[in-house]
Amino acid sequence: MSNIINLLTRAFFMSTPLILGALGEVIAERTGMMVTAVEGIFLIGAWGGFIGAYLSGNLVIGFLVAMICGILVAMLYGVTTVYMNQHQIVMGTAIAILTTGFCTFFYRVIFGVQTTPLKVETLPVIAIPFLSEIPIIGPIVFSQNIVTYLTYLLVPVIFYVLFKTSLGLTLRSCGESPEAADAAGINVRQVRFLAVAVAGCLGGVAGAYYSLCNVGMYTSEIISGRGWIAFGICFLGNWNPVGALTFGIVFGISDAIGVYVKALGLAGLPSELFSALPYFLVIVLTVCRKQLKVPEKLGVNYIKEN
């Protein structure tokens, strides 16, 4: 029993960055922008977060630096795709290569060659009084760190903003019918650009979660495709914050199972197959699940005619 509780606690812990990244992706994709730079944004978030936290000795500053780094990379992506009409998928790959080189290069510039990896204290767990004493649910849900709690709060907030406010309508109209939005006086490009920046901000925090909450250090393999999983979660969750939450937890569980099986170290068990589980799950779910709410102009750049 305690094994299962540990596993689920770990699952919720690991789902946070995926949900955060997917939430940012939901906002951007509702305006028609696929943020394919998400892998790069996660990586630079992890890098910036670690550097900020290590040099200042303060995790909050780390997360702030991660946000800024995420926003900057997202803005680079935004400028080239929204304003320069370059293809979104291709641009994302270019940015992924660039950030990989950039992060490794400047890690070296700042810290030189290190024989042992530098470490920071990870973000402490805050057990919420009373609630954390509830059997089973208490240790799983209410003994997490502050970023996890904030992420769960963010889900209803983003849901409300997207579907119940005029701001949400503005965002969604840019993804459904940019021509109509333009005719209604909305600056489509600006809305899309800002939405990408917001996605960059959330993605930066999500990346920093891996370096500051999970392992307390930075390596160049720290993200290894998890940005793409967040991207997939957004698709699977039907471009809905609640869907992002649900699938985020599903992937958190599969991620935790993979880590758990690997830690068991049973020779007969093909642990690699369990590690591949989240990625395989994206494929299976993408195929099985009907995607109903695809934003009409997703991935199509809006070019205003003169």
Partner: peptide
């Protein structure tokens, strides 16, 4: 890493 930087 300068290789990736150049290519990027």
């Amino acid at each position: 890493s300068v290789i990736d930087l150049m290519q990027g």
